[in-house]
């Protein structure tokens, strides 16, 4: 079960500005889904290793050889705010 405070905390971690309405709906929906999902916690999984990859591959490495980079004009063309040949943002230190 997720309460409103937990939903707000998670939304803050995920940088989502949920409306009051959504917070309530999210709490109910996520709780419902989690109720179902939580059944896996009843399984006996002692000593079972976790699987993060199904493929059994290690050490896929790249030689330290430079490859061409993108042109600045190309990448800045997509920028919501262009500032001084870079990507503008509100300053993290602004009041």
């Amino acid at each position: 079960m997720l309460d409103h405070a937990q939903v707000l905390h998670v939304a803050r971690l995920a940088r989502l500005e949920l409306s009051d309405d959504e917070v309530g709906r999210m709490a109910a929906e996520l709780s419902h889904v989690l109720d179902h999902i939580e059944k896996i916690r009843e399984l006996d999984l002692d000593g079972v290793p976790p699987t993060s990859h199904v493929i059994d591959v290690v050490n896929v490495l790249r030689a330290d050889v430079p490859a061409p980079s993108l042109a600045r004009e190309v990448i800045l063309a997509a920028a919501p705010e262009r500032l001084n040949d870079g990507f503008g943002v509100p300053s993290p230190g602004a009041a």
Binding site: I40, R41, L43, V48, P50, T51, S52
Partner: peptide, 12 residues
């Protein structure tokens, strides 16, 4: 409880 358990279920 969640992610770790799910990865073990994935193994099974």
């Amino acid at each position: 409880a969640y992610y770790g358990t799910a990865q073990k279920v994935r193994t099974k």
